[in-house]
Design a protein around this nucleic acid. Structure first.
Lengths: 98, 98
DNA sequence: CAATTATGTATAAAATTCTGAAATTAAGGT
DNA sequence: ACCTTAATTTCAGAATTTTATACATAATTG
């Protein structure tokens, strides 16, 4: 028999990734980081008027999914877009969405 | 300000599509249809040993998401893969999954 | 210790899945 | 035409899982 074109594991990962990004707050975070290059957690949660813990959660999700990366500088942690992850996702969406 | 690369609506649709496909039973259905060209509902639920209504439900989801299409012939409804939807999704996954 | 960030937990809200019953559609026999 | 049967769809519900949010607490750095 022919093996499937669809690897369940990869599929699950990709779905999980898109699902994670498809959230208003997380899109807002990504949008800000397209303009400001990098921001620390305080800047982010103040700009979005959300709880600090909430921002930290969202950031962690985006980092786990490979969209963001972080760098610590003293007490602050700066988050920034990782490579061309966003562009790749944009391409992915265009491929998927007929 | 620069507009976002990520259209929330499209993103949601793509996520929803991948999420829909990323289900063991639905992957199994797609895999069967890669080999058998077309199958009716009875063939499918018997092959997968699931309830008939459950199969119908999964088939409807896949059809709604644009992966399958159906054609009625007498009492039976045959389902088949729609165009190159599966190939496109496979590409999409490769783009997304770093 | 103060500032910043991360993590844990609990509760609520939303989405999925499965099942069984009822409704729809089509074909065949009388 | 009528009745029956087969195939499929659709609906309603309950059970499970996932996700979001808020609050509290922990950890790290200076």
């Amino acid at each position: 028999m022919a093996q499937s074109k669809l690897d369940p594991k990869k599929l699950e990962e990709a779905a999980s990734k898109l699902r994670a990004i498809a959230h208003p707050m997380r899109i807002a975070i990504i949008d800000m980081l397209e303009e400001k290059e990098q921001m620390n957690v305080t800047e982010i949660y103040e700009a979005l008027k959300i709880e600090q813990a909430s921002a930290s959660h969202h950031l962690n999700i985006l980092k786990t999914k490979g969209v963001l990366d972080s760098r610590r500088s003293g007490k602050k942690t700066f988050y920034y877009l990782k490579g061309d992850a966003v562009s790749q996702i944009a391409e992915c969406i265009n491929k998927c969405h007929n």
